[in-house]
Amino acid sequence: MNPLSAYLLLSAMLFSLGLAGALTRRNAILVLIGIELMLNSANLNFIAFWRYSPHPEALTGVMFVIFSIGIAAAEAAVGLSIIVAVYRHFRTTDLDKINYLKG
């Protein structure tokens, strides 16, 4: 196995862990953390492909990851403040109990 596949396998495992967390956890904050993990696994893919690409001096992979980290930080801040606002309304962050839209 070449090093690129090893990094891609690690990234796939991180993505699956994040997806499992986002689908099975009930605390809204931990669901958000799972989504952050999925974003991070995509970042690891970018860096691995950049490192083993024929033209790494263009720095495109690094730049994409820097902007992706910035957007992930904005998403985390807005998501957590939405969770705080939802908690103020429902008095809970358990996603199974926030079911007003359930048919």
Partner: peptide
């Protein structure tokens, strides 16, 4: 530095530390 501290503060503000059953 930032996201972990933010998440810990959100947990503190929502008191959801032991809500998971």
């Amino acid at each position: 530095g930032a996201v972990a501290i933010l998440a810990v503060f959100a947990i503190m503000m929502t008191r959801s530390r032991t809500s998971e059953t």
